[in-house]
């Protein structure tokens, strides 16, 4: 009968546990990626990309059907176009939102400015054509007072 030391028994148990754990992990990964053709597990915004958009290394060795190859190309092209369109739409959406926010701010600023501004139409009263209709005596007084204002400055 073989004599087993407690140290060896412990090491064996650890090795068994390690093998079982590795096997369980591999099985789990195979289950997750069973439907995926994406060999690198690349994700987009948290979602795994299912479509294999990469060139197959074994492609050249296979005798491929031209229709199938064409379809594959169209699929890849559609997938990349979809991604580009999504990015573009997102960018447009962000731009539209920031533009709307800017407009809103401008409108509120203008409203505040208008609310605090007193509109004065005095400049319309003192045009040369309207002053021309006044008597010379009145114009003389206005002339003198304006000069006095200038001299006072």
């Amino acid at each position: 009968m073989q004599k087993i030391s407690p140290l060896r028994a412990g090491l064996d148990a650890f090795n068994r546990f390690k093998t079982a754990r590795l096997q369980a992990k591999t099985n789990k990964m195979n289950d997750v990626n069973s439907n995926s053709t994406n060999p690198f597990g690349i994700s987009f915004k948290g979602t795994m990309i299912q479509m294999d958009v990469f060139e197959s290394s074994t492609k050249n060795n296979e005798v491929s059907n031209p229709i199938k190859a064409g379809l594959e190309k169209v699929n890849k092209f559609t997938a990349s176009a979809r991604m580009a369109a999504m990015n573009k739409i997102n960018a447009i959406k962000e731009n539209a939102v920031s533009f709307g926010r800017k407009i809103k701010e401008n409108i509120s600023n203008t409203y505040n400015k208008l609310a605090t501004t007193e509109v004065n139409f005095d400049f319309l009263k003192n045009t040369s054509s309207s002053l021309q209709k006044k008597p010379v005596g009145e114009l003389e007084d206005m002339f003198k007072s304006e000069i006095a204002k200038l001299e006072g400055k």
Partner: peptide, 16 residues
């Protein structure tokens, strides 16, 4: 000022 300018201009064009 613009007002003074207009007064002088008005006096220049005045018929009196």
């Amino acid at each position: 000022s613009r007002k003074l300018n207009n007064i002088i201009e008005a006096l220049g064009k005045h018929t009196d």
